[in-house]
Amino acid sequence: MIEIKDLSVKYQGKNQEILALDRLNIDINSGDIYTFIGPSGCGKSTFLYVLSGILKDYAGNVLVDGRDINPKTQRIGLILQNYGLLPWKNIYKNIMLGIKIKDREKVLDEYGIYILKKLGIETLLNRYPKELSGGQQQRVAIARAFILKPDLLLMDEPFSALDAITREEMQELFLNIWKENSVTTVFITHSVDEALYLGSKIVVFSPSPGRILEVLENPCFQADNLRYRDEYYDMSMKLRKTLDKG
């Protein structure tokens, strides 16, 4: 479980301090998918930087299973909004980065190859990031995080650069992988539809400075024919209303 108490983050801008997150309080249960939704600039990425141990200069408490965040002992699979690929490594080496650092692993196992095939990037391995499209880079970042088999999966708008059909395939793939290991997941999105489809809980952020407006149980999660159900419509309206009120 991740317990977050009074989490605030300030950035030191050139002229003034910018309050990015304003006293967040939330408990994230192990094994669940939490989708976070909120307007641009509300602090969603900042929130992920805190959870992934990148941003250490925050106020308040964040405990993971009762202990401080520590990327050295945890396995954190992080998909950054700008993909976070290293431009001097080819795609294969970029994908290997996670397990190289965590396990000193040098070659991809069967599971890894399965993931690459599923993501459709197995033919790109010798290229460099700048030779890939945005969507391809995004899939490389997804592969890197999945192959790590993390205990905590942090995804910052991971499907934003994909076309509608690929995105749906990726959502399917993500849910399948999640079902096998039920890894605790924080999933950031700006799409109401995606939040409803993937989240067992949905967290709504206010506009900047980010506060948590509401944490909703999602009755639509894992429902069949989701998009034709009344709950889906109701939830969708409810979310939009909360987002509008701000």
């Binding site: 930087y49 992934s52 141990g53 990148i54 520590n70 990327p71 050295k72 002992t73 945890q74 954190i76 992080l78 950054l80 700008n82 976070g84 690929l85 290293l86 001097w88 490594k89 980065l97 996670g98 650092i101 965590k102 942090l154």
Partner: peptide, 25 residues
Amino acid sequence: QEIFRSLQSLGASKLQTFTEVIIPA
């Protein structure tokens, strides 16, 4: 700073940060 983020989230050591990022960059 962004370039370091992936490694930070993986808990890379100082030495790993040097060999994986600082030297090639």
